[in-house]
């Protein structure tokens, strides 16, 4: 049984933000991450603030600039099935479809997906690790086959989202609202790595909520995809993955964004790999070079060196799909 908590279901965003500003409160979007954390005692909630009573947070709309606006409470299943997302932002549609299981995609929301807590088994388990206020990361000398190869510092988890790498690669903006108003944050700056602050995963301040994801229009000739590699054919978190967005003109890449999943505590952009394809034709040789550049500088732990091969493969396959 989950420990007891209070439950409120405000009818407005302002009321929800006011509630969430006090400590001990946690937002409930789809609940699929929150209930697991509460049940496992990762953290406790005095009050759960349900967002399901707030109107207008769900659905995909066309933006005035030709891009899309996706409400934070839109389920992953709805994102994956939306024709406009599939047509213009394939990496996001594929990322959303590759996340979790059908049931969890029917329940879990895009806003919740980018605000997930780490899936590290020490963090989720009965370990007082650094992220929970302890003084060490148990993965460093422990079972670290699923941990990060980039961006680790004090804490070494990998960001669990499949949608987030696509959002970063597509240049999305995260709209958030708090008790003092709204602000827009580029997806690339929304996630907080442990080198900046190992106690949080996003820049959200207490009382702030993700309300909307803004997808900008993509230049003509742009295509995108997300390649996910997991330990089994059925559903699982990514061992490694790559979201790739390329714009091609006259057969050559004029712009590329490549973002890794399963690699780092945040969606991990790999500028060297992007440079390796920019100005080039996406031939197997060019793609191989880019894939090798994607894992340059990686610092694997004792048991996750295999991820470098997988990440190389994910980048290679993603780019070849776009060739």
């Amino acid at each position: 049984m989950i420990p007891a908590f209070n439950y409120v279901r405000p009818a407005s965003l302002a009321a929800a933000c006011a509630k969430l500003a006090s400590s001990g409160t946690h937002a409930h979007a789809g609940g699929t991450d929150l209930l697991g954390c509460l049940r496992d005692g990762v953290f406790a909630a005095d009050t759960v603030v349900s967002l399901s009573g707030i109107p207008d947070l769900r659905g995909v709309r066309k933006n005035l600039d030709g891009g899309l606006l996706i409400g934070a409470m839109t389920t992953l299943a709805e994102v994956a099935a939306d024709p406009a997302v599939a047509a213009g932002y394939a990496a996001l549609a594929e990322g959303a479809l590759s996340a979790a299981s059908p049931q969890l995609r029917n329940q879990g929301t895009l806003g919740g997906n980018v605000c997930q807590r780490p899936r590290c088994w020490y963090y989720r388990g009965d370990f007082h690790c650094a992220r929970k206020g302890g003084d060490k990361c148990y993965a460093v000398k422990g079972e670290n086959q699923f941990h990060c190869v980039f961006g680790g510092n004090v804490c070494f988890y990998v960001h669990p989202s499949d949608a987030a790498p696509a959002l970063v690669a597509l240049g999305a903006t995260v709209r958030v609202t708090g008790k003092d108003g709204s602000r827009s944050i580029p997806a690339a700056q929304f996630f907080v790595g442990p080198e900046t602050d190992y106690t949080r995963e996003t820049v959200l301040a207490p009382g702030e909520l993700v309300t909307e994801i803004v997808l900008p229009p993509q230049p003509p000739g742009t295509r995108s995809t997300y390649r996910k590699i997991r330990a089994r054919g059925s559903w699982d978190f990514a061992l490694a993955g790559a979201a790739a967005v390329v714009t091609v003109a006259g057969g050559r890449v004029t712009r590329a964004k490549i973002v890794l999943s399963g690699a780092a505590p945040v969606p991990w952009r790999v500028p060297e790999a992007e440079r390796a394809v920019t100005g080039q034709r996406l031939t197997p040789q060019v793609v191989r070079k880019a894939a090798a550049a994607a894992v340059k500088g990686a610092e694997p732990l004792a048991e996750n060196g295999y991820k470098l091969e997988l990440l190389r493969g994910a980048v290679e396959e993603a780019l070849l799909r776009l060739a």
Binding site: Y7, R9, H28, G31, T32, L35, G36, R39, D40, V48, S50, S52, A77, S101, P102, Q103, L104, N106, Q107
Partner: peptide
């Protein structure tokens, strides 16, 4: 009881969901 096995699947508005990961109030 952690949203992984599907034994508790029910339909909510006709759509499959895990009842173990759904608050009754929701």
């Amino acid at each position: 009881e952690r949203g992984e096995c599907g034994a508790c699947t029910v339909l909510v508005d006709g759509v499959p969901c895990y009842a173990c990961m759904t608050l009754a109030l929701e």
